[in-house]
Amino acid sequence: MTPVRIGVPSAEEFLEPVQIVVEKVGSIAGVEQDDLTSLSIAVLELVKNGMEHGNDMDPDKEITICLEVLPGSLRVQVGDQGSWTPAGDVGFKPGEGDQLYSDRGRGILIARNLARWVDFDLSPEGKTLATLIWPIP
C-alpha cells in the first residue's frame, strides 16, 4: 500500500481529524480493532509534542504524518519544523513524588508504553522526526 501522508497546521482543532485518519488507516492496515484507539492516542501524543516543542503551536508551521504499512507492522513518522529531541530518558518511567501531580509531561511516556517502539531523530534536513512502530498480527 502506498504510504498515506497528511499535513496539518500546528493547531489543536486538527488533532481530531488526525485521530480519525490514523484509526482509519490502522484499520485498513490490519491493526486489531481493539487497538485502534491506543494507536491513535500514541500517534496524537507525538503530533502534540511536535506542535508544541517543534512548532511552538504556530498554525503557519506544518506537522507531517506519514503512515506506511511494512511487513508485520505499521510505521508512523511525525515530522515538525523544529530541531529538538527529548532527553534520552524521557518517557521510560512515570513521574514520582510531586511530578506525579503535574498536569503535563506524560505524552511520550504514554506513546512509548502503548507502541512497540518510539524514537526521535533528526531528518536529513535537520528537522525532528518521531517514528512509531505498531505491530500488525
Binding site: Q19, I41, K48, D103, R106, G107, I110
Partner: peptide, 14 residues
C-alpha cells in the same frame, strides 16, 4: 468517554 490522552489525564489531575 470514548477517547482520552495525556491532555485529558492532565485536566483530571489538575
Amino acid at each position: 468517554v470514548t477517547w482520552m490522552d495525556s491532555s485529558g489525564l492532565g485536566v483530571i489531575v489538575s
